[in-house]
Computed example of a mutant assay.
Amino acid sequence: MTALGFLYPGHSAEDDYPRMEQLLGSDVRLDVVHTDIGEDAHRVDALLEMGSPERLTAGVEQLRMSGAEAVVWACTSGSFVYGWEGAQGQVRALARSAGLPASSTSFAFVHAAQELGVQRVAVGATYPDDVAALFAAFLLAGGVEPVTVRASGIITAAEVGTWGYDEVLALARAVDGPDAEAVLLPDTALHTAAHIPDLEKQLGKPVLTANQVTVWEALRLADRKVNAPDLGALFTKEPLVQAG
């Protein structure tokens, strides 16, 4: 059994995790601990507070008790808002606090793009323009080039969590273009776990979504690869372990 831990901000699309656990097979457990987000706002000051060490540390002990082998801060905006160096510091502090390998959703996007061998991507963000631009800058710092970025201007995670397949597909289509090798949808408040194969079929290219790459990153930290085609192209590359 591989147990993986996730610090998830508030309550929006956390039901993606039990869905993904089911798709991964019976020997992978995804343990989600909710962190206090403070103010629900895609605004730089609120996001910096959301990702503060105090808020992350508060959930660590529960994850340690669950037997998790790795921990991921399951938040994109609450990590990239710190910039590349700041987000590295955030992850190092989390690793020290947890005594476990650690990462965040922002780094998961960069590592997932590297895994798929893609460098030019389209970004369909739920965020306001200024926050979406910070994610684009983070990707560039990691060697991934956003060829198009579309911001949806949504302020709260609560509103993002109400989106269904039609809205997600519309966003992905709106930002996609011939120069993009993959489409990135960076918000863990967005329900995507049930939609990834359909999105990839519609667009004809890999689609990387926040909760999907977060789980993949945790598996990477734990030295596991699982073949789970229902979670998209990212989970079908050179599998080492067949999902049951």
Score class of each variant (00 low, 15 high):
L221Q: 09
L116Q: 03
E49G: 03
P239N: 06
L184Y: 05
G25Q: 05
F107R: 06
A70H: 10
G78Q: 03
V44Q: 15
E39S: 05
E200D: 12
D129I: 13
G38M: 03
F138R: 01
E54S: 04
E14I: 05
G51K: 10
R43I: 13
T126N: 15
E21P: 04
R92L: 14
Y82V: 02
S66E: 09
D16H: 06
A98D: 04
L7D: 06
I37M: 10
Y8G: 04
T214F: 08
D15P: 08
A193V: 10
G99V: 10
Y17H: 03
M20D: 09
L219W: 05
P229G: 12
G86K: 11
G99Q: 02
Q114C: 14
Y165I: 05
V144N: 02
I154E: 15
A102E: 04
Q88M: 11
Q90N: 11
Q90V: 04
I196S: 09
A158N: 01
D179I: 00
G51R: 06
P197H: 08
W73A: 15
M20H: 04
Y165V: 05
E49Q: 04
L190Q: 11
F6I: 00
A95R: 00
T156P: 07
M1R: 06
H111N: 15
P9Q: 07
E54R: 04
A141T: 00
R150Q: 06
D27A: 10
A172F: 05
A158P: 00
Q88T: 13
T35N: 09
Q90M: 10
V183T: 14
L47F: 12
P229S: 08
I154R: 07
A98N: 08
A137W: 00
D176V: 01
D230N: 14
R29M: 05
P206I: 11
L203Q: 13
G67A: 10
G78R: 00
R220Y: 07
G161N: 09
D230C: 07
L30P: 11
E54D: 13
A122R: 02
T57N: 12
S52Q: 03
L100I: 11
E39A: 08
V168Q: 14
D176E: 12
L219F: 09
F135E: 07
A222V: 02
L4C: 06
K201E: 15
L139F: 07
V175S: 02
A93N: 12
A218G: 15
R120F: 02
A46F: 07
K237E: 08
D15A: 14
L203I: 08
V44D: 15
P229V: 11
S79Y: 01
A125I: 10
E238T: 05
V147K: 04
A172R: 08
A182R: 06
S104T: 13
L63Y: 01
G51Y: 06
P197F: 05
A58L: 13
L23Y: 02
W73K: 02
E181Q: 14
V44Y: 11
D176G: 05
R120N: 15
G204W: 11
V81T: 15
L190T: 09
P101A: 12
V241R: 12
D179E: 15
A46G: 11
I37D: 03
A68D: 14
E167G: 12
S66R: 14
V207Y: 13
L140K: 10
L169H: 14
T76V: 15
A182I: 04
A158S: 07
Y165C: 04
